[in-house]
Design a protein around this nucleic acid. Structure first.
Lengths: 356, 356
DNA sequence: CTGAAAGCGCTTACAG
DNA sequence: CTGAAAGCGCTTACAG
């Protein structure tokens, strides 16, 4: 059976016209130049044959593939799925397809992925894996490959970016802890090679200073990756001596989960002994014990914006790069409590499964 | 600057050979037929020019694109990211790229995605979105499009599938509850139009019968989608009358989270009043309050197997379809407790944040 | 408004 | 072992 796919030529024969006419009729941008009845006839023939355009052929001719790649460190980090969904939905609505690649935070793999994507004729890249100093970003710029960085940005600029106001987000966290009466506040920082880690640290310090917190009361430990494990290891260092903090502002939610682990190790309770704030508001934090107070970023919206901007760059190469900066907000849950009211909080926390 | 990409012809000129020779030299499968020094010379020229193969051109000629699509209902369901990661890593290791598409459980979108993917020259499909009766699967079979269904399977057969032994998984859950002394056990079932929902229900009933549980003690409510909300709505119906169950076996983890919500609504405690078992072992369940006992499936391994099998089908069209059935295991956590020991359990649960 | 032709960059059967 | 040529299925400048 498996007759080979019908081509424009097959439709042309059936409709009694030339293949080039079929091409014009099937392309919405050119169909209006043909007489309506020819177009109708051709459309009928195409439908009758079950015609499906041959993307590779079109791509070879036009140089465009209407496919876009999304490159990220690791899909299993729960921040990414909603971002990717926003990207994919927006791309799909415009007839683009989304290619997905995980770098696993491995530079060699990252480079290999880039080569393969370029080889496969990707029209542009959305990078969620960018480091502050990123060789792939440099190459895209050098080769004029349409590019949007998302969630994180790069130091060099010259690229469109969809990011969050991390300075403000970090300030929200510190302000909240300060409002609750905390003074000995620690920052569980993320990798400083990433713009998020860097900007959130800077935001933490700026906010602490402007709130008049004493430098001696502040401390920072660094996690080398955004993982629960790295958060666990880094947080341990916070609780070793007597001057331990009463609150920890973490650079992301996974680090905060690691902080929970460290608290358990040393027998401290959250929030009775130590308040914890995360960052990102990844899914299901409301069901944790205790539910994690965090800084919410607009995951899906970031994805949608990035997709829209990338399509602009693809369709209009002269488009200048620009940034979209989204506003984070604080989501207060059970992991933060007033210094004074700790004992009352304890009463609430006996029914942990059902706290909001 | 933007000189257009170098082609085989450019390399040929530089190396003083014909373009066809360059093609052979750069293809590992044919390079051995050429003299070693010619190959070396050509490779040098290619490297010097920064040659990158033009995938669309090769694809037009060979009919293969070395790209594979992964179609799923919704990436934000936490079962999928580890599956997709397993797929993507395995594909990448063989030089394939992964296209990702979300159907959003919408049949029209599902069909549109299929058309677009076929148009873009996808070599094959991994479907995590298959329903027991699935028109897209039928079309793939009719058109001999390489296909693997994953996690779920189809009633008609004739397709390679990587699935879990859901019968066994459901039995593990029921057995566990029974061992804890529970007799009035409910099943919070998933959509019966999906093989997982159907198989887990069947497994639940079979296991209950073979354990000698009385039909009058068993009950089933159905969720119409695998979401926390649908689980919440369905679970509410379980706790309306006096004959409420002491344990609930849920068809997936999100439904179990909805069950937690319903328990909170009616003021019942988990596990003191009602034990709950999930299914899938999605990430971070250990941090919930209470930590969810669940049936673990091998997410990444499913993805790896599916990718491997799909590549087999792509590279060897005569390959007959076959199933890979993976073994689930029970992961016991804090959401299940002995009927008798409920009061002791209560003591443990006062420190909920730090239970394993 | 439509046709005829060229060509995008590969691969591969056919020669030699 | 290497070359010359054809052709995959489109799109589009050029005619008319």
């Amino acid at each position: 059976m498996a007759r080979s796919r019908p081509t424009l030529k097959d439709i042309a024969e059936r409709a009694g016209v030339h293949a080039s006419t079929v091409s014009r009729a099937l392309n919405p941008a050119t169909a209006h130049r043909l007489s309506a009845d020819v177009v109708a006839q051709i459309r009928d023939a195409a439908a009758a044959l079950g015609y499906r355009p041959h993307g590779a052929a079109a791509s070879l001719r036009t140089g465009l593939s209407r496919s876009v790649a999304v490159v990220l460190p690791d899909l299993t980090n729960p921040v990414f799925p909603p971002i990717v969904r926003g990207i994919e939905e927006t791309l799909a609505a415009s007839g683009f397809i989304a290619i997905l690649a995980n770098t696993g935070n491995d530079p060699d793999r990252y480079a290999a992925i880039f080569e393969r994507l370029m080889s496969r004729g990707t029209d542009g890249l959305i990078l969620a894996s960018a480091r502050r100093d990123d060789p792939i970003v440099d190459r895209c710029i050098a080769e004029s490959i349409p590019l949007v960085v998302i969630n994180r940005t790069v130091d060099r600029g010259g690229v469109s970016a969809v990011i969050n106001d991390d300075d403000r987000g970090a300030a929200l966290a510190v302000q909240h802890l300060c409002d609750l009466g905390h003074r000995r506040i620690a920052h569980l920082a993320g990798p400083q090679s990433l713009s998020t880690g860097h900007a959130r640290s800077r935001g933490f310090n700026r906010a602490a200073r402007s709130l008049g917190l004493a430098a001696a009361d502040l401390s920072t430990v660094f996690a080398d990756t955004y993982t629960r494990d790295a958060g666990h290891r880094a947080a341990k260092r916070l609780f070793r001596d007597a001057s331990q903090p009463t609150a920890v502002a973490c650079a992301n939610d996974l680090l905060a989960l690691g902080c929970y682990d460290a608290l358990r190790d040393v027998g401290l309770r959250c929030p009775e002994d130590v308040s914890v704030v995360g960052y990102n508001d990844m899914p299901f934090l409301d069901l944790l014990a205790p539910p994690l107070t965090t800084v919410r970023i607009q995951h899906e919206e970031m994805g949608r914006q990035a997709a829209r901007i990338l399509m602009q760059h693809v369709e209009k190469p002269a488009q200048q790069p620009f940034d979209v900066v989204l506003r984070p907000e604080l989501v207060t849950r059970g992991s933060t409590a007033s210094l004074r009211r700790s004992s009352q909080v304890e009463a609430r926390s006996t029914e942990p499964a059902f706290e909001a």
